Simulated assay, not measured.
Amino acid sequence: MASDVLSSNSYGLATNTHWSGVSSVPICAFKSLLYCPGSRGFVYNPSAGLCIPLLWLQMGSGGATLGSADPLEWKVFVTNGLCRNGFEAYDYGSEGHFSCFKIITSSYEYSKATTECNALGGYLASVKTVDELNVVRGLAGSKDHWVGMDDLAKEGVHIWQEDGQRLTSEQQQTVFKPGEPNNYYGVEDCIHFRGSHQNLNDVHCWSTKRSVCESAPLTVTC
Results as ranks from 00 to 15, higher is better:
3 S>I: 07
3 S>H: 05
4 D>W: 05
6 L>Q: 10
14 A>W: 01
19 W>T: 04
20 S>K: 01
22 V>C: 03
27 I>F: 04
28 C>E: 06
33 L>R: 15
35 Y>Q: 14
37 P>V: 08
38 G>K: 14
39 S>L: 09
40 R>W: 00
51 C>I: 04
52 I>S: 06
53 P>C: 10
56 W>Y: 10
57 L>G: 14
62 G>F: 02
62 G>L: 02
63 G>V: 05
63 G>Q: 02
65 T>C: 05
70 D>A: 06
70 D>H: 00
71 P>T: 07
72 L>I: 07
75 K>P: 00
76 V>W: 01
77 F>H: 12
80 N>G: 15
82 L>A: 12
83 C>N: 04
86 G>Y: 04
87 F>P: 03
89 A>I: 07
89 A>G: 12
91 D>F: 12
93 G>K: 01
94 S>V: 12
96 G>Q: 06
97 H>P: 02
105 T>E: 15
108 Y>C: 00
110 Y>E: 02
111 S>G: 06
111 S>Q: 10
112 K>A: 07
112 K>F: 03
115 T>W: 00
115 T>S: 10
118 N>K: 01
119 A>G: 06
123 Y>K: 05
127 V>G: 05
130 V>H: 08
131 D>T: 08
138 G>Y: 00
141 G>W: 03
143 K>L: 14
144 D>S: 13
145 H>D: 07
145 H>N: 13
147 V>S: 05
149 M>E: 12
150 D>C: 08
150 D>Q: 08
150 D>Y: 05
153 A>I: 06
153 A>K: 11
154 K>G: 01
159 I>K: 14
162 E>K: 10
168 T>V: 01
169 S>G: 00
172 Q>C: 02
176 F>I: 02
178 P>H: 07
178 P>V: 04
181 P>Y: 00
183 N>Q: 08
186 G>D: 06
187 V>F: 04
188 E>R: 05
188 E>W: 02
192 H>A: 13
192 H>D: 13
194 R>T: 03
199 N>T: 13
200 L>H: 02
201 N>D: 11
202 D>T: 05
209 K>E: 15
218 L>T: 13
